[in-house]
Design a protein around this nucleic acid. Sequence first.
DNA 1: ACACTGACCTCCT
DNA 2: AAGGAGGCCAGTG
Length: 111
Amino acid sequence: MNSKNKFEPSFYDKVYEVTRKIPFGKVTSYGAIAEFLGRKGSARMVGYAMNNAHYLDDVPAHRVVNRNGLLTGKHHFSPPDLMQQLLENEGIEVENDKVLNFKEVFWKPEF
DNA sequence: ACACTGACCTCCT
DNA sequence: AAGGAGGCCAGTG
């Protein structure tokens, strides 16, 4: 997976690392992660990394939504509703494939 | 090494 | 206000 050497984690690895640090009951956006990693305009890379992250059970991909709080990646889960179910299970209100109180449950990536 | 892909974001009609 | 197109850049064939 990692094309770079092990001393310098690839972009994907950083995305996974940040995604794992998302607190319980919190969510973040692709753009926020991309910006945090220094690739502000590269939100697509984050989403692409999330695609691969599905093979990892350590990465809560359901906590990552787009900038509008919309569950864009829900269709990529086994049952599409699983993403919403997981979020609601964490106390996050989701309605019409959108995260309610997105501003409150939003978690800015940080170490 | 080139071309295409992609769970997004922003700007421009 | 709603929709279309371009841009961002790492990874894979």
